[in-house]
């Protein structure tokens, strides 16, 4: 039984302590405000009898600042103001604390699949033997054991994505940020990636996967919570520079989370239409 199947059933859940918080993030690039007062929070979702990680989708139109916020959350870019805190009590994020899978799944081309994972484990402080054992376990979990000795250029796009995710989990353990993981995929591939992300999230209670995307349907299919990033409008209707979280859609509260095949549900389609109409105003 896959993890996605486990998500069927009563949606009883509790929200525990925050696993990630961003407070008052401001950032300008080249004098132009990109982010303005971004506040967000991810809390540990606990469902009795299941191991449930958190999947959050950050939605927004192209060019609104999603990737910039992604970089700030990953500790790759310092904001002008505000902070990103990890865990409870909150520790300021530093690069390496949050796993990052960029759009084209970067890997070290000069290392084998196993080598890519081992080097990540070594950076996380594991001994060579520990890193190798954990890497082998990770490859087994991601169904990549038979690809261990291949180089990244010998992998398919899907395999490459899984190796990139596994590599980040070798190092960052519980947090994973993915930039546009559904980009350029056909609908079947989108479903498979969505399933895999849910499985990855549910590998550990504390796992938190944040998906940055502009694909509304895929985001709703995979996420428990959706953040909508966008710009305000002035009274004349012109966009005000600098994006912030305009809306938070709690799919757990709406009973739309943890159901496989939820994508065709009328309520979810209705929500997708509502979000799509807001896109034009962001």
């Amino acid at each position: 039984m896959s993890v996605a199947d486990e998500r069927r059933g009563p949606a009883a859940y509790e929200l525990h302590s925050p696993v990630l918080q961003a407070r008052g993030i401001d950032l300008s690039l080249g004098g132009a405000p990109i982010l303005r007062g971004v506040d967000l929070e991810v809390r540990d979702v606990v469902r009795p009898g299941t191991c449930t990680g958190q999947v959050v989708a950050l939605l927004g139109p192209s060019g609104v600042g999603k990737t910039t916020l992604f970089r700030v959350l990953a500790g790759l870019q310092q904001p002008d103001a505000g902070s990103v805190l990890i865990g409870t009590p909150g520790v300021p994020v530093e690069r390496g604390m949050v796993g990052v899978v960029a759009q084209n799944y970067p890997l070290f081309a000069h290392r084998s699949v196993l080598g890519n994972l081992v080097v990540a484990g070594r950076r996380a402080g594991q001994s060579r033997q520990q890193a190798r054992a954990r890497a082998t376990d990770m490859l087994h979990r991601f169904d990549l054991l038979d690809r261990a000795s291949l180089y990244p250029s010998q992998l398919s796009g899907g395999q490459r994505q899984r190796v990139a995710i596994a590599q980040q989990f070798m190092c960052s353990e519980h947090f994973l940020l993915l930039d546009e993981p559904f980009s350029g995929l056909d609908p079947i591939a989108v479903e498979k990636v969505a399933e895999m992300l849910v499985e990855v999230a549910n590998l550990d209670e504390l796992n938190t996967v944040i998906v940055v995307t502009h694909d509304i349907n895929a985001a709703l299919e995979v996420a428990d919570v959706v953040w909508l990033l966008g710009r305000d409008r002035d009274p004349a209707g012109a966009p005000v520079p600098g994006a912030r979280i305009q809306e938070t859609y709690d799919l757990m509260e709406c009973g739309l989370a943890w159901h496989k095949g939820i994508g065709s549900s009328p309520r979810l389609l209705e929500m997708a239409a509502k979000i799509r109409s807001r896109f034009n105003l962001l």
């Binding site: 690069r95 960029a102 996380a124 190092c171």
Partner: peptide, 16 residues
């Protein structure tokens, strides 16, 4: 830049 940032996300210092 993304190749350098990828290494940084794996807790590598600048010389590494």
């Amino acid at each position: 830049r993304e190749r350098l940032e990828h290494a940084r996300t794996l807790r590598m210092g600048e010389w590494r």
